[in-house]
Design a binder for these strands. Structure first.
Lengths: 201, 201
DNA sequence: TACCTTTGCTTAACAGTGTTAGATTATTTA
DNA sequence: TAAATAATCTAACACTGTTAAGCAAAGGTA
């Protein structure tokens, strides 16, 4: 009978409806609000049936991660194919990556583990501002042309910090990647030198 | 009587012993293993007394964050004071920052929200590797001198990714900072151009 | 049609989480 | 010694992810 296929199709439908519900909850209430019971509420079932479609909560997260990479892949591919020169390709691809991170914020958080918990009060902590003040002062002194605008300091500060924080994140998250310590140190120092040189040019 | 001060000192002691216990648990079992009851076990009390010293769990995390920034501040300050030239200061400070992130991994994770959950299986996901393959291919084509070693591609890939991921992280975590969208786009494109230029020089 | 088996789904429970209220014990004060 | 205060614990609440048992409806078979 054809009912077999209909049932299979229905099962596939509730499977994706679980993923949709999860994404919906995350987009409206944030990652920390995502719970199995809440997903079950959205699809009008009880929590245990979710385990008929996914092994556990992480299974749902993993599938959403896959979805995210599919979207990201499509965006980057399209950006690449819009240009001929490799330089233009490169810039367009990274800009696409950048845009993906903000238009699909929740996906990016899931894919690259950008945690946003306990970051609300942290802004106005004296100790934190002291650190950025020290770095800002030295950056200011790097400029030959004085005085330096707050904007210029800020920009260079974020440039430094981005590449270093990025490198650290990557190495903390995937410590057994294909990069070595020497390679990382090389990238780090090259990047610092590059940014420092670019200040007065 | 002087017992008032002794009691106050004792209270201060258990307060720091709570923080020490929390740090100890995190260092041996990771962030996800940190629970109020486990902290209580370590200091040989029951969970509710922790709330006499901290408003809630986030309060403990916030205090540990403060501790982290104190250590980081000291490290960066010392690195700065070891050099005279601003360029040397800058490099030493960022290297100190880098070293802090790895010698005080748990602190860094707390301070900058580098999540390491659900990153074990994620390595071998086809969709993820497809994305990095696309980017790697274009990077390879950027090199004038052919053939390009796997190492060179890898290094440039991580350089690109670091700065972009870093910029995104910073902007996702603290969206209301002192940076504007135009400034970020400027930093982003400058950085991309800079790395691209550095490939054949 | 009657029975049996399978499927779909729910209820109830377990072990864990952060957090709070009430009771209990110990200590200090009068 | 008696009252007041402080320190601590037990028990509970409302959650979390996850699992086992049971019920009810559907399907297949005689």
């Amino acid at each position: 009978m054809g009912s077999k296929e209909r049932i299979l199709r229905l099962k596939e439908e509730t499977r994706t409806s679980i993923l949709d519900a999860a994404l919906n909850i995350v987009q409206t209430e944030g990652w920390q609000a995502l719970s199995m019971r809440k997903i079950a509420d959205h699809i009008e079932y009880t929590a245990p049936i979710i385990y008929e479609y996914f092994p556990n909560k992480e299974g749902i997260l993993l599938e959403l991660t896959r979805r995210g990479y599919q979207i990201l892949g499509k965006d980057i591919r399209e950006a690449r194919d819009k240009h001929d020169l490799a330089e233009d390709k490169m810039e367009a691809m990274w800009v696409a990556y950048w845009n993906f991170a903000f238009t699909h914020k929740e996906f990016y958080q899931l894919m690259y583990g950008v945690d946003m918990v306990c970051c609300t009060v942290k802004n106005s902590m004296a100790e934190a501002e002291q650190v950025s003040a020290m770095l800002g002062d030295v950056i200011e002194s790097l400029f030959i042309k004085q005085p330096v605008s707050e904007n210029d300091i800020c920009m260079k500060y974020y440039t430094y910090w981005s590449i270093i924080h990025g490198l650290i994140s990557i190495n903390l998250v995937r410590p057994n990647g294909r990069t070595t310590d020497e390679l990382n140190q090389q990238i780090l120092k090259d990047a610092i030198k590059g940014i420092t040189l670019s200040i007065n040019s």
